[in-house]
Design a protein around this nucleic acid. Structure first.
Ligand SMILES: [Zn+2]
Ligand SMILES: [Zn+2]
Lengths: 658, 658
DNA sequence: CAGGCATGCCTG
DNA sequence: CAGGCATGCCTG
């Protein structure tokens, strides 16, 4: 079994690779803090780069987990930077993957985030201003799939559900991960929907997945280095094709192999390359158990035409390890949402900046020593918000103020309390002992909510919760760019509101978002935020689906025995709804709404309570382009940041196999 | 837990260390065959060396286990080559360690095999003709303890019985093995009883323990190599003393560190060195899980004054691994002799050659491909005998012929059959189903013997077995150098003989060996051989002890419930008799006799039956110097070969924890 | 090729 | 520092 929880600690690793590490020395600072600093400075560096506006699509997406002490089960931070050139039709800022939290699929930005259909005018524009973006030469190489104008796609053969323990290789579609034995040729196939220009090649380049190491070039361990006479002596990945070229980037030191790309032979759909990995993931003094990905870029003259990324694990027992990781992942998926005592929180920031003009931030990096994890985490999130705020334009701030004022007025009109359900059976199950029947402003509201999770009747009145009027309710579920001005010291209270009030607040959310095709997803987000901030009058699935415009799926939920939205905690949309015919749009909408329901509390004033809450997660976002319409702009350079952090806590007394 | 069963297979290892291996390429031949060839050619090479007669003591002792497939549990071959200079007093060829079979103590040749007391005339003799015998410069370095004229001894602190899992180091006196963490300074102490000449130093040199690798220099794996600026960059062992010198022998490539030796500080008994091991035993591309020993030689001007050898395991958890290996060893000791279905055989050859004159054997090495383990093992033993035969002198051959003739005459006088015990209960227990009541010449006799093991009554008549007259009965239990002329295709039959016949045959054995101090051990061996070749009339312990002249221990056996010699299978002399006051001489005599009883069948015509026999082991020996007396020689150069092979087979249906 | 060990290293 | 995992590799 192989998981990704275990990583070499920094100090021991530094000793191990002291001879080969060519990464910067800033890893000696406290890991987590430094991680973010490094990550952050990278982002800043990229956006400050003068080439930024000419980059067609340069997303950066990281997924890592640290903070491994204590109860923390998972902590993923995805940072995505995407620069998009908008044409006259406008390219909608797709946020359909916004709430994606699986760590094994972190890089799946939607294909339609690419600059338009093949052979459109954008492709010309792109090719006429080709920046030197060869994957190997970038300090922070992108690991985001991008089929590009030529429909570049990777293929690893017919999907298999399992493999013998020691097969030479096996691909897990679920994990999007290749498990491959060392020194075994592995056929990797590619195709393009259109034939790229002559001289196009595919570059295969391994990168470390975790931000601590992403700057370090992946190379073979000393044990497995080839003879100096071989061009590929230090390359992890070799290609059976003798004409393959082995590059070592002079500045980044990255080792990659470039293989001529030709369209598939007649009768075949794909072009196959036999690749060999020359080190184990576990190789001491080399990969050293650090997860890697392999970035395949379709390139021509250094210009990236497409990109496909897969995780790769080079190990002695690909079948065994695949099984282990898939099981691990399934356990994660299945059990975490069910865990009463487990808390998960996801925060996500998305910042879109129109144009490249913005004052250059202070690039000096400071180190803040913080004692205690709770304080540290709190400070980190504040820090993130503060730093991200610098990317919010004045227009966005103004817009936020307006929205804020309007919303507060609406909320003030709501009654603070109404009635409390007398049904004692609602407090059955795993509800904590201290479950006061009357709601107050005290912080244990999530415990109370946990006590209601198992209700299977349809109460006429039930809980709803929203923030107190004097705090910024949009702080973690913003529906506009102004959400950056948030108050992290926010407190939640629980209110019971009537159905009328619910619908009005939903309307409010709907109203605050512009309609129209380009802002559709944006509006969707606003609607989702509304459902969690202003609760439905009853917690029946029917009402909830109705509020989402998804009544047609009521039967499906009922068949699964789900009658109240409190039961939604037990759902796994990807799994439970995998076989159900449903437009992707709806699927995403439902998934987002469920996530919102699960994560009503993002931050409380007492950070330690994060470890005790029944279920908390949060998604904060900064949607850009809110003030834009297609008629307003002819061509826009847009930069989108997405920073998503998911943290999970494991409650001690619960066993893994509950 | 760490055992020594697991070894890298040859091919994978070759690939792993292809960059660093500087050993000969003959490892590509079949491992086992090649192992012996290599080993053998080494022996031949050493003895053919012109320097042989001037070498004071140059024993070679190997212990390894291969043949790991099938039921084989253990296979140790110890080869010892000792060249001894005999003074006027004569130095008896001590064979007190002859039956030692523990693989963890293979190198403990007796200290009195050294050339006499300190400051004797030999020391002068030795120092006036100093050969270049620095441990590092020898292709096949000795790993035999030798305190030498100065009483050189190693000390690893107060013995401990156990240690915490991850202590930086711990020494197991039982295993004579140091378990030490990588990169942790380990204090190793030495003392001498006399102060050696100025300029004396201690050389620490690691060697591989197994003959497959013993020629290869031990060096760090590429991962753990130091910077080229360090003299010790490739040395496994480093010393904290900056004045230590790091040698790399130009011809052998061996890496060693030489540390100045000074007598202990006043008030201390030992001189301490802080040594550090820079690679794990498991290091890929380096030690690669190959067991090592460290040879500490007290040297002066390249001359070896003393030698101390310990096994070393560099690992991350010294305490854990020590516990594991000690447990493993205890299990081996305790359980193997008890196992009914397990068979163990030990063969041991000892060849002593007087003087250095002997025709140079053909040094060409050929490879015989053999299909099937049984055939292979059979052929290997034959090969060994044949090759060892070339060391037998003509005098020895003549002596053998004489003995042979005399013995055959005696045997012909014995009745072939008498009666068969009617006690059906003798066939209880683990006896195989096909257990014919009447004895014939068929080959399944060992099965029948197994059926008799559990008898706990004292039958008036019981089995005895010896070889048919037309075969050479001394083939595996020789009592003289002529034993080399053996017939390995020998067959055994079972006879029942009377007690009178037993004692007569014992007398025979006794008569054939000369009396006197110098040949005492020789005589003892002959007696032992006699007890197994001509069986006692009854199988009671009393009779057996009486025949050995050890009646005084009858009570001890009875207290342990042992009443027949068949029960001796269940005894472990070293353990069961550890606390019993008994002269070492008697202990050895008993032990040898028990071994003989256990191993009546050494070779059968059906090799596969080796895997099925209840208990078989054998000791063959070639005692040298049989014709010598102290008065005949003033000074003698003697060379003694000892080749001992121990093989154990595990029967499938028996569990380890029976 | 499945079972399982050996063994460095991570976690509490 | 003990428990236990991760993972290359050996064995049947
Ligand atoms: Zn490697
Ligand atoms: Zn090493």
């Amino acid at each position: 079994m192989s998981g990704d929880q275990k990583q070499p600690n920094c100090s021991s690793f530094e000793r191990n690779i002291s001879q080969t590490s060519d990464a910067g020395g800033n890893l000696s600072q406290p890991l987590s803090d430094d991680t973010f600093s490094m990550l952050w400075s990278q982002l800043v560096g990229v956006t400050d780069n003068g080439n930024i506006n000419s980059v067609c699509a340069n997303p950066v997406d990281w997924n890592f987990s640290e903070f491994q002490g204590g109860d923390l089960v998972e902590n993923n931070v995805d940072v995505s930077l995407q620069q998009i050139e908008l044409g006259p039709q406008g390219v909608p800022l797709d946020i359909s993957n916004f709430t994606q939290t699986q760590s094994f699929q972190p890089n799946m930005l939607p294909d339609n985030a690419a600059p338009g259909p093949p052979m459109s005018e954008y492709s010309t524009d792109t090719t006429t201003t080709p920046p030197p973006t060869s994957a190997a030469s970038q300090a922070l190489p992108s690991n985001v799939d991008y089929t590009g104008d030529y429909g570049f796609e990777i293929y690893l053969g017919q999907p298999t559900s399992t493999a013998a323990k020691s097969v030479s290789w096996t691909f897990s579609p679920t994990l999007k991960k290749l498990f491959v034995d060392k020194d075994k040729a592995c056929p990797i196939m590619f195709k393009t929907s259109l034939e790229p220009p002559p001289g196009t090649y595919i570059r295969a380049m391994p990168i470390f997945k975790k931000p601590e190491y992403v700057q370090e070039a992946v190379r073979r361990c000393p044990n497995h280095q080839g003879p100096p006479s071989e061009r590929s002596a230090h390359h992890l990945i070799t290609c059976s094709d003798p004409s393959a070229l082995y590059d070592e980037d002079t500045t980044t030191g990255r080792m990659s192999v470039a293989m001529a790309y030709n369209m598939p032979q007649v009768g075949t759909e794909h072009t196959t390359y036999l690749l060999t990995f020359k080190c184990f993931l576990s190789c001491v003094g080399g990969l050293n158990r650090r997860q890697i990905q392999t970035v395949f870029t379709l390139e021509n003259s250094g210009q990236v035409l497409g990109r496909q990324v897969i995780d790769v694990r080079v190990c002695a027992c690909p079948g065994r390890d695949r099984k282990g990781e898939e099981k691990h992942q399934t356990e994660k998926q299945n059990k975490k949402p069910l865990k009463r005592g487990q808390s998960k929180m996801t925060q996500s920031f998305s910042v879109t900046q129109i144009g490249g003009k913005r004052k250059k931030p202070d690039e000096e990096v400071y180190c803040i020593m913080v004692k205690g994890r709770a304080n540290y985490e709190l400070l980190m999130r504040i820090k993130e918000s503060l730093e991200l705020m610098s990317y919010v334009t004045q227009d966005q701030r103004n817009q936020h103020k307006t929205d804020q004022t309007r919303l507060q007025q609406q909320i003030h009109n709501m009654p603070r309390f109404s009635s409390f359900p007398s049904n004692a059976s609602q407090q059955q199950g795993a509800s904590p002992p201290n479950n006061p029947p009357l709601l107050t402003n005290q912080p244990s509201i999530t415990s109370q909510m946990a006590g209601l999770h198992r209700q299977d009747t349809l109460p006429l009145h039930t809980f709803a919760r929203h923030q107190t009027p004097n705090t910024n309710h949009v702080h973690d579920h913003c529906d506009g760019p102004s959400a950056m001005e948030v108050d992290h010291q926010v407190k939640f209270t629980e209110d019971v509101v009537s159905s009328q009030e619910i619908s009005s607040s939903q309307m409010l959310a709907g109203q605050s978002s512009p309609s129209g095709q380009r802002s559709e997803d944006h509006a969707g987000l606003g609607q989702v935020a509304g459902t969690s901030q202003v609760s439905p009058v009853d917690r029946s699935i029917g009402s909830w689906l109705g509020s989402l415009g998804c009544q047609q799926y009521l039967d499906i939920f009922n068949k699964k025995g789900i009658r109240t939205i409190d039961q939604l905690d037990e759902i796994n949309l990807e799994q439970d709804f995998a076989g159900i015919a449903m437009p992707q749009q709806h699927r995403e909408k439902l998934w987002k709404a469920i996530l919102q329901l699960r994560n009503p509390i993002f931050l409380t004033s007492t950070p330690s309570s994060l470890l005790r809450t029944g279920s908390n997660a949060s998604t904060a976002s900064l949607g850009g382009l809110s003030g834009l319409s297609a008629s307003q702009v002819q061509r826009i350079q847009a930069t989108r940041f997405t920073l998503k952090q998911t943290m999970s806590f494991q409650v001690k007394e619960e066993k893994e196999d509950t």
